[in-house]
């Protein structure tokens, strides 16, 4: 499968243009690193690709087709702040059930302990929560994963654990990955290709 962003431009209502004419494409099985300065628009691009924001110009296409607005989105975004992507009034069990990701092998590989499932998000640390947001996205219906700084706030061991699970799962299912990070070591370690957002060729990659 092929995920493409074509001539994407974005701005918030009343705001300045955040980026203009961005072209990006990711094939299944590819792990693309996206690096660039803080605040240059990488996160916004992630949101546009995952359908959280509509571009003011351009299109996001999956195998040449537009992505429907309802139903399960095969492009799943994992966010830097797990505490914001989990309802604080829910137990973690419900969080996993919302996407139907209850594969015990994944939970185990992720180091999710059984008794965490009955807890609320405020009773878990950031690293523990992020494992849930990742587990939630590792799902039969997911074809592409966009990881926006998902391990920036985590210690090295948790980072290595989460990434090893994602890479392993991605390999088995032939997922395409877009990895947004400030950590060059990480990008060099896991990516098949690295793009610098600011030096991106704006007219076809």
């Amino acid at each position: 499968m092929l995920l493409e962003g074509k001539n994407l431009s974005f701005k918030y209502p009343k705001g300045d243009l955040i980026f203009k004419d961005v072209n990006i494409s990711i094939k299944s099985g590819e792990i693309v690193g996206l690096i660039g300065r803080s605040g240059c628009g990488k996160s916004t691009l992630a949101k546009v690709l995952a359908g959280y924001e509509r571009p003011v110009e351009g299109q996001v296409l999956l195998d040449g087709k537009e992505i429907p607005h309802s139903g399960y989105n095969p492009i799943q975004l994992i966010y830097q702040h797990p505490e914001k992507s989990i309802n604080p009034r829910w137990r973690m069990k419900n969080v996993l059930e919302e996407s139907g990701s209850m594969d015990h092998r994944i939970l185990e590989a992720m180091g999710i302990e059984r008794d965490w499932l009955s807890r609320y998000s405020r009773e878990l640390s950031g690293g523990e929560l992020q494992r849930f947001s990742v587990a939630r996205a590792l799902n039969d219906r997911t074809r592409f994963i966009i990881a926006d700084e998902i391990s920036t706030m985590l210690d090295a061991i948790t980072q290595a654990q989460i990434w090893n699970v994602i890479l392993d799962y991605g390999r088995k299912r032939n997922l395409g990955l877009l990895v947004i990070t400030h950590n060059l070591h990480l990008a060099q370690r896991i990516c098949t290709r690295i793009i610098n957002f600011e030096r991106m060729d704006r007219n076809g990659e």
Binding site: G111, D155, I157, A160, R189
Partner: peptide, 18 residues
Amino acid sequence: KALFNALPQNEFKPFKGN
């Protein structure tokens, strides 16, 4: 040592347990 080994520029190796 485990922390050091887990860095992406080193072994990038996770460590069992929590």
